[in-house]
């Protein structure tokens, strides 16, 4: 329980801090300017540091996990996507992993029925992972409109698609809802499935609560407690043009939303969320299975102590000769 309550309390504290900071202490400049800049810098620097840090460790061996037929004899059909042997094929495999969560799609459920182990297809995690990540991506892209002067056409198109059902005023964005649903599903499976509950850490609940709070504050702002969107854009454009300003009359809820987003940015490089970058570097996926075709070099390969043939022959010479096995030194 504590594993869940502590991160929940943390998110509540974050909300109170930002609310009190703006409403009681009048620290709009801190929450609207200083922290966003700080968050941005920490995120960018943090992620660069992460990737460099991973990159500093070499890949001594070529260890792809092969999930299909290897390239061997020409008449045996190779599974080029699941067991790639060239760069292009590996690139295609990575596309499937990164954009379609290929490996998660394989997911199975293992159960015991009457003393028998049975396997069933289990695509729910894959489905909600896709829903969650793509919704987040669309929401993220939609927000670019706050950081550019003239909103590009692609964003208008995306918004049109996202509000395809033409419901409500202002029009309801589908991804706002699916993002929230995705987070809720990921949270529920964590507490409902006993194994997943058992392995969960506070660090698994915190980002879920945080993202949930971000989504909810966003939805509140858009549909319920309206904020002055023009003023918001003045603030965000001020940040982008390095000419920061705090327009009057933006509702406090905006600062709460912004502060939570900043927290996510700051938290990102130091948490499991770095899987976003790490997935590209995974040696079991991003290497071609060609280790018998092309030599892979280990930069730290070093000479080792071996038991040489000469020593072996020296030790077993008599037995070898007696058994008629040829020796080097008669």
């Amino acid at each position: 329980m504590m594993k869940m309550l502590v991160p929940l309390a943390a998110v509540i504290v974050l909300i109170i801090v930002s609310l009190a900071g703006v409403e009681a202490a009048g620290l709009e400049a801190v929450f609207g300017i200083v922290i966003p800049y700080l968050a941005f810098i920490i995120f960018v620097a943090g992620m660069i540091w992460r990737v460099i840090d991973w990159g500093k460790s070499p890949v001594p061996f070529r260890i792809p996990t092969t999930c299909g037929q290897q390239q061997s004899l020409p008449w045996i059909k190779q599974d080029k996507l699941e067991n790639p042997s060239t760069c292009t094929q590996t690139f295609a495999r990575m596309i499937l992993e990164v954009f379609f969560f290929r490996s998660l799609f394989r997911n199975l459920k293992t159960e015991l029925h009457d003393g028998k182990v049975v396997y069933g297809s289990d695509k729910w995690l894959w489905l909600f992972a896709i829903v969650f990540h793509y919704s987040f991506l669309v929401v993220f892209i939609r927000h670019i409109r706050f950081f550019v002067g003239d909103v590009p056409d692609v964003i208008h198109i995306l918004e049109a698609l996202d509000s395809f059902f033409q419901v409500g005023v202002p029009l309801v964005y589908i991804t706002g809802l699916t993002l929230t649903a995705g987070v809720l599903f990921l949270f529920l499976r964590r507490i409902v499935i006993p194994q997943v509950r058992y392995i969960s850490l506070p660090a698994d609940y915190f980002p879920l609560f945080l993202i949930f709070a971000i989504a909810i504050t966003g939805i509140l702002m858009r549909y319920f407690t309206k904020v002055d969107v023009v003023a918001v854009k003045n603030l965000t454009m001020g940040l982008v043009t390095l000419n920061p300003q705090i327009p009057q009359g933006i509702g406090s809820i905006f600062y709460v939303h912004l502060f939570l987003v900043c927290t996510l940015f700051i938290y990102f490089p130091f948490s499991k969320l770095v899987h976003m970058g790490g997935v590209f570097l995974s040696p079991t996926r991003n290497l071609a299975n060609n280790s018998r075709m092309e030599r892979h070099v280990n930069p730290w390969n070093y000479p080792v102590k071996v038991h040489s043939y000469e020593e072996y022959e020296h030790e077993f010479k008599d037995k070898m000769k007696k058994a008629g096995i040829p020796v080097e030194k008669e």
């Binding site: 998660l104 194994q195 997943v196 392995i199 698994d204 499991k272 770095v274 997935v279």
Partner: peptide, 11 residues
């Protein structure tokens, strides 16, 4: 660093 403890591996 990158495990999210989704539990896909568990069973």
């Amino acid at each position: 660093d990158i495990c999210v403890r989704c539990g896909a591996c568990a069973d």
